[in-house]
């Protein structure tokens, strides 16, 4: 064991345990870590915003390349800031409507393409009982169909329709369970990462042997 002398590692360990202390109950160490995160995130965002956005996407195109037209969206963006001035907050609507309208216009064909047609295309599989892949395709096909029936609320879930919808619930439950299991494992791997940081980086324990 060889404890690290790097002050940054000590700071990292301090904040790791400060956050973990929340498992006991909310306490000043956790609150400190929480506010430090907010502050550091804002500072980080400011630097990235300035160096990666303002300079290359606005300052250089406008003042060095003469794309003065970009002053118009800049004014629209500044109108968004007027949201915090009650008397002129309505001016922010121009920027919001510009962005929301364009976003909605883009969303209709793209959503149709990526989330509806592509998904339908991927469901039109080769169905057969003669191979494992064919049986899996049948399960996927009927699974999609039953889930869609379950989400169809314009007709009462009764009789055959209700029975099909119930099968859809089974598929959804298995899907939620799988997603849950996957999420838990992802969180656990993050936790393992923090434990390894304390054991290896801080305490200097060589786990590889």
């Amino acid at each position: 064991m060889h404890i690290s002398m790097n002050p940054w590692v000590w700071i990292g360990v301090f904040f790791t345990f400060s956050v973990l202390s929340f498992l006991y109950k909310d306490n000043p160490f956790y609150k400190l870590a929480e506010h430090v995160t907010v502050g550091v995130s804002i500072g980080y965002g400011l630097v990235i915003w300035w160096t990666n956005s303002v300079i290359p996407r606005f300052y250089i195109p406008v003042f060095e390349q003469g794309q003065w037209i970009l002053i118009i969206p800049a004014i629209l963006g500044l109108m968004m800031v007027l949201r915090i001035v009650p008397k002129y907050s309505w001016l922010s609507r121009y920027a919001i409507c510009f962005s929301v309208g364009a976003g909605s216009g883009m969303a209709i064909p793209r959503s149709m393409q990526a989330q509806v047609l592509r998904q339908l295309e991927a469901t039109m599989l080769n169905l057969s009982f003669t191979s494992g892949a064919g049986i899996n395709n049948i399960i996927i096909f009927f699974g999609v169909l039953t889930v869609l029936v379950y989400f169809f609320f314009s007709k009462e879930h009764k009789g055959v329709f209700g029975g099909v919808a119930k099968v859809g619930i089974w598929f959804l439950m298995i899907g939620f369970g799988a997603t849950f299991g996957y999420t838990v494992m992802a969180r656990l791997s993050l936790f393992i990462g923090r434990v390894l940081f304390v054991l290896q980086d801080f305490l200097g324990i060589n786990l590889a042997g």
Binding site: A107, M112, Q115, V116, N136, G143, V144, L172, F176, A178
Partner: peptide
């Protein structure tokens, strides 16, 4: 198998619903 078959079917069903929902909401906004 769970992730690639029944989970895929459930996710695809939801994706279709979400896609149609986005389209409807976008249309309502426009």
């Amino acid at each position: 198998w769970i992730l690639n078959v029944p989970n895929m079917a459930a996710k695809r069903g939801m994706q279709l619903g979400i896609g149609l929902g986005i389209m409807m909401l976008s249309l309502k906004i426009i």
